[in-house]
Design a protein around this nucleic acid. Structure first.
Length: 450
DNA sequence: ATAGACCCTTAGGG
DNA sequence: ACCCTAAGGGTCT
């Protein structure tokens, strides 16, 4: 009843290989989608979008908000002509969705390319198909990822939800749940905002958000953010200029240096609460820079575990030099859409998706990790002990047929992985045992092993 | 350049 | 049953 108009379901031919909304909408890109009785809902550009998917189609429906402040609802006075039947001529929801899901990229083609140039991707991706980078609103991505620092997906989603409820416009209700749009920068500006956000549990991020909102609203302007977009991205393709049209108009930025991924990244770093990782998230998911590779704890783990990135620099802190070198490395193997490939491996590494990992049975993330570490030991059995030091392993035992690795998962846990190898090939055959010990038990184990 | 502090929530071990 | 610790898509000083 709260909605002005509710469209009928429409559908878009789309395979699950090209897009899997169940994965893409849950993997920590957007924090606003909610699943209610098997349908996904979110407000995009002022309208409430509902989605469901089968093997061949993406089904969508739109709920338009009731016009605010107009005493006479025109639709009520107008006879049945257009009521309950959203004008499909005018409705641009399909193009909105094509743009939001960046459907102009062929995901299956990209997966093939990444798999061809990267064995690790080829091994992990089959269980995680259909993961796309969403083309989100840049301002929303900026604020959401400021919230993401030192935080988990659950709480980030709660925080974004609070921003919408307290500062964003109400759009509609579905099964008793209210949906608001994401607030504009001006709505999050003001002297009271920081204190209020602290009350709402934002912690130290409250100041970052309030300050960034102020800067975008009044100092730099919302245009500033939009000018950081990738002009080459299909999502922001310039309006088609006809041959006869004036061309000087399009090159209005003749006095400015052309925008690049690097300059966009640097520009974002000037905002409070925005470091290299958050800047890359905004570049990738809000500004169309496919080569942006956000390096967080997960990606850093992946880089070390699967791509032989070593922590040999004594320092324990993750420096900006290291950050850039990880990103450059992934760009060199995955190419111009490296950020898209990153999201696939990132998702495969999430605990929430651990059940999907590896085809044979459901191995936990811990087991997966143990297998991979053990495999690494197999490949480099000669340097097993030095590697063990690099990776913080406590005990390493190798012989002709079996490799046993024990490494420290946390201070109070040790995990032992046993990988069987077959003769000269030293191929991993999948036999894995994992044990979790208390400190006391592992001490005994260590003694027994040595 | 490099440790700590920073808000808050939850899961798991004592 | 509770307290305690660690960790969760980092950034700032």
């Amino acid at each position: 009843m709260g909605a002005h108009k509710l469209s009928d379901w429409r559908k878009l031919p789309l395979s699950l290989t090209e897009l899997c909304i169940d994965t893409t909408l849950r993997c920590g890109q957007s924090f606003r989608w909610r699943k209610i009785s098997d349908e996904w809902h979110c407000v995009l550009r002022g309208r409430l979008i509902s989605l469901k998917q089968d093997a061949s189609h993406l089904h969508y429906r739109v709920t338009w908000p009731k016009p605010t402040g107009s005493p006479v609802t025109s639709s009520d006075s107008i006879p049945a002509a257009g009521d309950g039947d959203v004008d499909t001529e005018q409705d641009d929801t399909e193009s909105l969705l094509r743009n939001y899901f960046a459907l102009s990229h062929s995901l299956s083609t990209l997966y093939q390319q990444w798999a061809a140039s990267d064995a690790n991707f080829a091994r992990r991706a089959p269980a995680f198909t259909g993961i796309r980078i969403l083309n989100q609103d840049a301002w929303e991505a900026l604020v959401a990822f400021i919230c993401s620092s030192n935080n988990n997906i659950g709480r980030i989603s709660q925080m974004v939800q609070k921003l919408c409820i307290h500062y964003g416009p109400y759009i509609g209700t579905i099964e008793g749940e209210a949906f608001h749009d994401f607030p504009e920068p001006q709505a999050l500006s003001g002297t009271h905002v920081e204190a209020h956000l602290r009350e709402l549990g934002f912690g130290y991020r409250a100041a970052y958000i309030a300050q960034t909102a102020e800067i975008i609203s009044y100092l730099k302007g919302a245009d500033w953010l939009l000018r950081l977009r990738n002009p080459e991205s299909p999502a922001f393709a310039a309006p088609i200029t006809r041959p006869g049209q004036n061309e000087t108009q399009s090159s209005s930025s003749s006095d400015e240096t052309p925008i690049t991924y690097r300059t966009a990244h640097e520009a974002l770093l000037t905002l409070p609460g925005v470091g290299p990782k958050v800047a890359d998230c905004v570049c990738l998911m809000g500004l169309g820079w496919g080569e942006a590779v956000p390096v967080d704890t997960h990606v850093w783990q992946i880089a070390q575990r699967d791509y032989h990135f070593s922590t040999k620099t004594k320092t324990k802190t993750f420096t900006k030099v290291m950050y850039n070198s990880v990103g450059d490395h992934f760009r060199s193997i995955w190419g111009p859409q490296a950020g898209w490939a990153q999201s696939v491996l990132f998702t495969s590494n999430l605990k929430a998706f651990a059940g999907q990992a590896s085809g044979a049975g459901t191995k936990s993330g811990i087991v997966e990790e143990a297998i991979v570490k053990a495999e690494k030991m197999v490949r480099r059995s000669k340097q097993a002990h030095s590697l063990a030091e690099d990776y913080g392993m406590g005990v390493v035992k190798t012989d002709e047929e079996e490799v046993t690795t024990t490494f420290v998962r946390s201070r109070k846990r040790r995990i032992t992985a046993v990988t069987k190898v077959s003769g000269s090939d030293k191929k991993h055959v999948g036999a894995v045992e994992v044990e979790v010990h208390t400190r006391r038990t592992s001490k005994r184990l260590k003694a027994a092993a040595s």
